[in-house]
Amino acid sequence: MSPDHSERRSHVVMVEPALTQLAKLTANETHRLDRAIVAISVNPRLGTGVPGTPLRDYVDEIDGVRVIYYVTALRTITIVAYVEA
């Protein structure tokens, strides 16, 4: 019998607008955002779907971050389009 395995984390890629925003964040903001991105990579369904688009909107009220992203069809890559911290 094979052991139960948790889902594999998706690979996270940031597009240019997100990278530009990331460059403007402080070290503390980057750390908070990193936790949110790890959570999304483990469970890409965390965010709320944006109607009429493939985008998902994830807001972490505790850390005060927002990530807009979409996930590829096989859920192996999560593409981050927008970050806010």
Rank of each mutant, 00 (worst) to 15 (best):
E16A: 13
P44E: 09
E7H: 13
E29C: 01
R32S: 07
I37P: 09
A36W: 06
A73R: 14
M14Y: 14
P44Q: 12
I37F: 06
D60N: 12
A23R: 06
T30L: 09
E7G: 13
E84C: 11
L55M: 10
R45V: 12
H5R: 10
A36C: 13
V12H: 09
E7T: 13
I62Q: 05
P54H: 06
T26N: 02
E84H: 08
A18M: 07
L19K: 15
V80D: 09
P44K: 06
V12F: 03
P51G: 00
T48C: 01
H5T: 14
V71L: 15
V13Q: 07
S41R: 09
P3S: 02
H31T: 08
G64K: 01
A85V: 02
H31S: 13
A73I: 03
V15F: 09
R75V: 02
G64R: 00
A27V: 15
Y82N: 06
P17S: 06
V15M: 10
Q21E: 15
S41D: 05
R56V: 03
T76A: 12
A23H: 04
A81D: 10
A27Y: 03
L55R: 04
I62E: 05
D60R: 06
S2M: 06
D34Q: 14
G49M: 11
L46Y: 04
T30W: 02
R66D: 06
P54L: 02
E84P: 00
R75F: 11
H31W: 03
M1W: 10
D63R: 02
L22E: 08
Y69E: 08
I62T: 09
V65A: 07
A73P: 12
V67E: 08
R8Y: 08
R35M: 10
D63P: 00
T30V: 03
T20F: 11
P44H: 09
Y69N: 01
S2V: 12
N28I: 04
L25T: 07
T30I: 03
G47A: 03
D4E: 15
N28W: 01
M14C: 09
T76Y: 12
I37N: 04
E84V: 00
G47I: 00
A23E: 09
V13N: 05
D60Q: 06
R8I: 08
A18T: 10
T30Y: 04
D34C: 11
T26G: 11
G49N: 12
I68K: 03
L33V: 05
M14K: 07
R8C: 08
E29N: 05
K24F: 07
D34A: 13
P51K: 01
R8K: 14
M14S: 06
T53H: 04
P3V: 11
A81G: 05
D60I: 02
T48K: 13
N28H: 10
S41Q: 10
E16T: 13
E61A: 12
R8A: 15
V13T: 14
I68H: 01
A39G: 03
T48H: 11
A39V: 00
T72K: 11
L19V: 11
A85P: 10
P51S: 00
A39F: 01
V65L: 05
Y70T: 02
L74Y: 15
D60E: 10
L74I: 06
Y58S: 04
V50L: 12
T76N: 13
L25N: 01
E84I: 00
R75M: 14
Y69Q: 08
L46R: 05
Y69S: 01
S6R: 06
E16W: 08
V80F: 11
M14N: 03
V42D: 15
Y70W: 15
A85W: 08
S6G: 15
V65Y: 07
D34L: 13
